[in-house]
Design a protein around this nucleic acid. Structure first.
Lengths: 225, 225
DNA sequence: TCATTTATATGACATATATCATATTCTGTG
DNA sequence: CACAGAATATGATATATGTCATATAAATGA
């Protein structure tokens, strides 16, 4: 059981407000876990009695739409927490979490977190601000879905992926999504997504190297959005 | 300056966690205001240094999309608070609020609310839960926008409007929206919205009485969603 | 290694939805 | 009341996007 005090990841999340004593308590009650790519961390409707802290890796938060398609609501990465909303609302989670890469996550039971919540104002303020940020993002995503074309959403998403997850040495996007996953972020059919990527490729906006995507003309991509 | 203690509306919002002393303080610092239909309460990007409590009436929260169209993100009614997210994030508001009917709203400055926040755990918990609820709704709205057809979204919205705002004596929807507003809730062109309402009318799902809409075949509407 | 599945790609076509035009009805105001 | 400006309605048409079919490429696993 590693000490939370020394966990670098802690610095990036709401947990940074915890003091030494609290971190010791945290380390005692948390459980660590390796999650393989493709593995489910939790599923829509489950009762998750606590939160997950992502030490390494990236996962997708998805929601099943009535038409049977999964929609990717958010990508969550190293340093972020999962399951906060559900814990506060005291409800089952409304999204599923699935690893996009091998991950390292720690689970902290609700009782512990709620203790910090009551006693450490800075901590609860941090959590709230995170959730408020999520709400703001969700609102603007909603408007994007309603008002923008698929092409615009694709351009925007590609830029977002590069901004958020960076690029490899060969300048391709670091995060590896299937066309299917990309389609379910932008909210379109897989074929449409593939077709538009082809178009972008032909018109020199991006370069497709096998599964890898390289953003070639960022200014033009930005102008599309 | 009316007393907050006696305000019935208080019972429905996060404010119900406040004790007598806090309510007295609240009454002292709040300002009341009448807002006429169509009037703007605040606008996207503004700094709103506090929150609004809706004593009566309904307003729409809109976000301007890059294509110049307004999208209605949420309808907010009697008993609810406005501007919580922005206050907690300490950021300008990301949405505009415009009255759909004549309204009565009270404004409470941020300093006061933040005081309750620090001292009254139940209150801050209530606010958090509200925001968490908003986030959950926003996520599911996002998926709706991405995955459902306009027809499905229209059916869903009509049902929502009846559920949330009820009906008049003649069984028509109590809340009065223009076709344009309805379109910008479901995220479509005004003409498309009008056309679909016509279709719904012809196929007996609804009945259009001038501007008023009556939901005729609720089971069928529900099956569409 | 080969075989089987899965992901990517592309064409052909159907369809939902947006856009533009125009008519009609409603609403508020002088 | 009459009029101007909205709001509603509907047709004609263009376009974006989904769907289905099929081909190729890549990945997986026995």
């Amino acid at each position: 059981m590693s000490k939370c005090e020394q966990c670098i990841v802690r610095e990036f999340s709401s947990l940074k407000a915890l003091n030494k004593d609290e971190l010791v308590k945290l380390a005692e009650c948390k459980t660590s876990r390796l999650v393989k790519k493709g593995e489910v961390i939790f599923e829509e409707g489950e009762n998750v009695n606590g939160i997950f802290c992502i030490k390494d890796g990236v996962c997708k938060l998805t929601k099943l739409s009535p038409n049977g398609k999964d929609h990717i609501v958010k990508l969550v990465t190293k340093g972020e927490l999962l399951g906060q909303r559900s814990m506060i609302s005291d409800e089952p989670v409304n999204l599923s979490a699935v690893a996009l890469e091998d991950m390292q996550v720690c689970f902290v039971p609700k009782s512990e977190i709620m203790g910090f919540f009551d006693k450490n104002n800075q901590f609860s303020m941090n959590v709230m601000r995170t959730i408020c940020g999520d709400l703001k993002d969700a609102d603007s995503q909603m408007v994007n879905m309603a008002q923008k074309t698929v092409k615009e959403r694709l351009a925007e998403t590609l830029l977002y992926l590069q901004d958020t997850f960076g690029k490899n040495e060969d300048d391709t996007l670091k995060i590896q999504l299937t066309r299917d996953e990309l389609a379910s972020i932008i909210g379109t059919a897989t074929e449409s997504c593939i077709r538009l990527l082809s178009d972008f490729n032909k018109s020199g906006l991006i370069e497709i190297k096998g599964k890898k995507i390289l953003l070639k003309d960022i200014p033009k991509l930005k102008k599309m959005v």
